[in-house]
Design a protein around this nucleic acid. Sequence first.
DNA 1: TCTATTGTTCGATTATATTCGAACTTTAGA
DNA 2: TCTAAAGTTCGAATATAATCGAACAATAGA
Lengths: 113, 113
Amino acid sequence: MKMLHHPDKVDIQLSSVLYALSDPVRLYIVSELRREGEQSCGMIDVPVVKSTLSHHSRTLREAGVIHVRVQGTQRMLSLRTADLEDRFPGLLNSVLDAYERSGERIAMIPAEE
Amino acid sequence: MKMLHHPDKVDIQLSSVLYALSDPVRLYIVSELRREGEQSCGMIDVPVVKSTLSHHSRTLREAGVIHVRVQGTQRMLSLRTADLEDRFPGLLNSVLDAYERSGERIAMIPAEE
DNA sequence: TCTATTGTTCGATTATATTCGAACTTTAGA
DNA sequence: TCTAAAGTTCGAATATAATCGAACAATAGA
């Protein structure tokens, strides 16, 4: 089974986290994870094909924003809430609160998959 | 005199702000502006040449993070603290607090200018 | 008016990102 | 053992960004 790399908490870089959160699709994914808790890739409704979603998931994981757990054929994604709160107190919540209040949304043009 | 465009407060996009803040050089500039208040480009000591600094300044301005005021031959940069606080409460401070506490720094290799 | 200062713009180069579709891998379950 | 489901990886196309140096513009001050 493939080993998924997650950075140690102390190695999480602020600029990488901000970069990971600066994409509308990834911001949406992260906000869904906060609202709904752990989700598989397939449960997240984004207007991109599977391979693109996989890429975004990897970007978030490598930046230290999410944790990915393998369960059968699924990958369960969850926010690294505690690690992020510990390293950058208040950051994630202020970003996601801002996101939800701002009404900024991804263009939900369905991907013809 | 050149007209500098600043987005209206309500048009400031979260993803653009996060993107603007995701570059180490720009993060440094912004943290200096919070520490020292309004600064001209020349007062900000970053390891890039003038034209590159000008580019970063423009990125921050167009994202709505900073305001640029023309004073003689200088451009005075300042944070749009109130606008950002109004639109994304807590965000800027949590980012900059995180930056200062994390010890993340730009590589200060002096630009051979 | 001339010159130095301060910064912008432009063009080129190099590096990264985003996205898709196709092929592949892994696992669950019939 | 086969097949379907769920993702990943790869290759290619396109787009965006970061950086520099050179040329330019605007202003202050001698």
